[in-house]
Nucleic acid binder design. Structure first.
Lengths: 184, 184
DNA sequence: TTACAATATTCTACAGCGTAGAATAAAGTA
DNA sequence: TACTTTATTCTACGCTGTAGAATATTGTAA
């Protein structure tokens, strides 16, 4: 019943056929619920396709996950320009945290990716918000690193908290503590 | 050649026999080089023992890794009490970072553990150092969380940096930035 | 139209993983 | 001496990522 009921070879033309986008979107959707990275077999099953079909579109699983990571960029907060810099930065941080929580398993992928990652998008938005503060560039860098790595660490804590006691709002205190002290 | 050359059943009494400590120490030693968590099979092979032998001492792999984590506590910096609090805290942070780098794969285990983890040790040493500052307790908490999660995030970045460009010293700027701003 | 190449898929298989469950043999105890 | 406990090995299962080959359809050049 499992095999030899699907035809081998190139499928006859079909508008609703497989594609990199479809695979990525299915993988995203599967992660969104659990936060866990699904297996190639699990993804392929959801798509009613042989596991190896995915490898036509992605060299390996890691590349597929990078595809997922790239497609998350649009979910990151866009500064409105109307709020106080602290509020803007908090929105940005919280939205980044929400993404990291939703797709927890992607953090390593994110950090290992060469470019175009959500992390990069976060950085450029950070610069936009923080630019008016006229910080010395080395201080801006230190601030950014502190914030980004804090958020990554916090999201790991979120992911590892099995009791479900921790929520993204727990970051508020530390973020306030930090933001209050940035300017001299 | 592989199997059926080792005797089954309880081994004849031997001083150099297996033990939880021996397993943990071998696992630690294997991690120290690569930072990666070895497989149960790999550990057992190094110990010239059947993989399932490990399960006599540890319910599962996770418990074994918790054992490794617990045994790392002694490697964490003990405040000398002679240095400036900023220097003490930096020593503590750097030593914690060094451990996290050495045993990168343990971060998840650490965060998931219920207690007695190196994280706890870090916290109590932190309190010791920071107590004289007489911070409001909510601020102390915010500071601690910020620092710990930053260090966790930074250590992930270290672990994911395949180019080897990143070193623990990169944390200095952000740590200085933070420490300088703690007091009001 | 007829080959042939390119494309897109399935199938088979492998080596690795954690580990459940049973078999086994030595040590300790009654 | 018989029985129980302890410490080990063996076998096996279901999972993982994925290499390599077979296969069938589509697109293209003769």
């Amino acid at each position: 019943m499992k095999q030899s009921e699907a035809k081998r070879g190139r499928p006859s033309k079909d508008k609703n056929s497989l594609s990199a986008e479809l695979i990525v979107s299915k993988a995203k959707c599967m992660m969104a619920g659990t936060g866990k990275v699904p297996s190639m077999r699990a993804i392929s099953k959801e798509l009613n396709v042989d596991p190896m079909a995915l490898y036509y579109y992605f060299k390996n699983k890691n590349i597929l996950l990078e595809g997922v990571a790239k497609s998350l960029m649009s979910e990151i907060y866009v500064p409105s320009g109307k709020l106080d810099w602290k509020q803007e930065l908090k929105e940005l941080s919280k939205s980044y945290l929400a993404i990291l929580q939703k797709y927890d398993g992607l953090l390593k992928t994110l950090l290992s990716m060469s470019s175009n990652s959500p992390a990069d998008v976060f950085v450029s938005r950070f610069n936009l918000i923080v630019n008016p503060l006229k910080l010395r560039s080395d201080q801006e860098k230190a601030f950014l690193d502190l914030l980004v790595d804090y958020l990554h660490g916090f999201s790991m804590a979120l992911a590892c908290d099995s009791n479900g006691e921790l929520t993204p709002d727990y970051a508020d205190n530390s973020l306030d503590f930090l933001f209050k002290r940035v300017q001299v």
